[in-house]
């Protein structure tokens, strides 16, 4: 297992987990989201090919009401 931080919270995933799989596991499939890993955007087209690494810091965001 590898340890990553998602939106400030620790999570564990099996070695070789991709961003796509993480999105599925966290029940975020189908939601309009954007993903940042260690301060860099991970474009949707690369979610499948991008594998999680130990210590990755991920931010997953949505659009919400705001001024």
């Amino acid at each position: 297992m590898i340890n990553v931080i998602v939106n400030g919270q620790p999570h564990q995933f099996p070695q070789g987990t991709s961003i796509s799989q993480l999105v599925t596991t966290l029940a975020l499939t189908g939601k309009r989201i954007a993903v940042e890993c260690n301060g860099e955007i991970v474009p949707r087209s690369q979610h499948e090919s991008t594998l999680l690494r130990e210590g990755d810091q991920l931010e997953i965001v949505v659009a919400v009401g705001g001024g």
């Binding site: 939601k31 919400v64 001024g67």
Partner: peptide, 14 residues
Amino acid sequence: VTVAIRRTNIGQNA
């Protein structure tokens, strides 16, 4: 319309 960008709630109902 303006919108804000915020962390998604993990475990939220899809």
